[in-house]
Simulated assay, not measured.
Amino acid sequence: MSLHRKGRAALVLALVAVVGMAFRVSWNALRDIAGAVGADDTAAMLYPFVVDGLMALALIATLVLTGDARRFALRVLGAYTIASLVLNYVHGLVPELHGRTVDWGRLADWDPANWALVLLATSLPVGSIYFGSDLVAKVLHHRPAPIPATAANMEESTETERKRSTADLEESTPPQITAPVVRVPDRSPVDHRKPALALKPLPQIDPAPIAPIERRAVAAESTRPRRATGRVPAAAKSTRPKRTPEQLLTEARTATAGLPDEKVTAEGIRREIHTSPVNARMLRDALLAERAAASAV
């Protein structure tokens, strides 16, 4: 594993070195082209980064993006590669560009070719702004697709679940016993025209005596609580004496003495004197009847 990583690191470093040297060669030609189309010294030095730098950005985008976005990045990479190749080719054909003695805006003797080359050289920076921004936005908004589960991972996961399930079982499950189904033949239809055959009685066979089997009763230990049987002890009985209806009515009058008729309810009487709901309703009706009779007088 360590040798594999070292080999990959060495390959990447060699690629970076080759790309750096190629950029240096192309940088010379593109700088002279930029000076010929009117760029100052600073702009001419930055011009190669505009063209070849976008090529590097498009190459990285093709490694990250997928689908239509990846195809768009490949088109940008191909277009700027061809543009850089054309400008480097023109730089090799026009010796005056090396010493910057060429006329300003003159890259070819034939006017249509010159116009096309000047348009190409001046449009590349604008294209770098547009395409570079679009590629960066696509890379930032890209969401990688989930990695599909391979057969090895699925097999390993299945094996893990199988081992886990086997370890959870304390004992093996006994096989389920299915009783065989015996089909009883259908009874043949009785022909009433034929006389029934007389069946001979079978000789009676006395059953063989069965020796008694001694069984020992084993008391089953039960964890369920036993239900109380018999009489309730005196200590468990309520010590409060049972009240008569007259006593309940007297207590109800006292509890509802200062209440208006609409607030005399069975629930309120039940809570105040601690009686049953049936008695509370009877007391309520009696109290309301007494009040109605008193108000009528």
Rank of each mutant, 00 (worst) to 15 (best):
L249C: 08
G230N: 00
E267V: 03
R227E: 04
T256L: 08
K263R: 09
R253S: 02
K237S: 11
V264G: 03
A228I: 01
V232Q: 12
E251T: 01
T239L: 02
K242W: 10
E262D: 07
A228T: 02
A236I: 10
E246P: 07
A257T: 00
L248K: 12
L248R: 15
K242N: 07
T250W: 08
P241C: 01
A234S: 09
T265A: 13
K237H: 12
K237M: 13
D261G: 02
A236Y: 14
L248Q: 13
E267G: 04
S238L: 10
A228K: 03
T265E: 14
T265P: 11
A252I: 09
A236G: 10
T254F: 05
E251A: 10
V232Y: 09
R253A: 03
R253V: 01
A234C: 02
P260N: 08
R231I: 05
A234W: 05
R226P: 02
P241L: 06
T265S: 15
G230E: 01
P260H: 05
A266Y: 04
E246T: 15
A235I: 08
G230K: 01
L248N: 13
A235S: 13
P245F: 14
G258H: 08
V264K: 02
A234E: 12
E262R: 08
S238V: 11
V232P: 07
R243Q: 13
A255N: 08
A236D: 15
R226A: 06
S238P: 12
S238W: 05
A252K: 11
V264I: 15
T254I: 04
K242I: 10
R231L: 08
R227L: 05
L249D: 12
E246Y: 13
A255H: 08
G258K: 08
R227A: 05
E267H: 05
T244Q: 14
A234R: 09
T229G: 00
D261R: 04
A255W: 07
K237W: 07
D261E: 06
A228Q: 03
P233Q: 12
A252D: 11
K263P: 00
T239Y: 00
P245I: 15
E246L: 14
E246F: 13
V232A: 11
E246W: 12
Q247D: 13
G258A: 11
R240T: 11
E262T: 06
T229L: 01
P245C: 15
A228C: 00
R231F: 05
E246I: 13
E267Y: 04
G230C: 00
R226E: 07
R231W: 05
L249E: 13
T250F: 08
A266I: 02
K242G: 06
P241H: 04
T250G: 04
A257W: 02
A252L: 10
L259D: 04
L248M: 14
A266P: 03
A234P: 08
Q247K: 13
R253C: 00
L259S: 03
P245L: 15
A252E: 10
Q247Y: 08
L248I: 10
D261H: 01
L259W: 09
A228M: 02
T254N: 03
K242F: 10
E267R: 09
R240W: 06
A257M: 01
V264Q: 04
V264A: 04
A257H: 03
R231A: 08
E251H: 05
K263I: 01
E251D: 09
K237R: 15
G230V: 00
Q247L: 11
P241N: 03
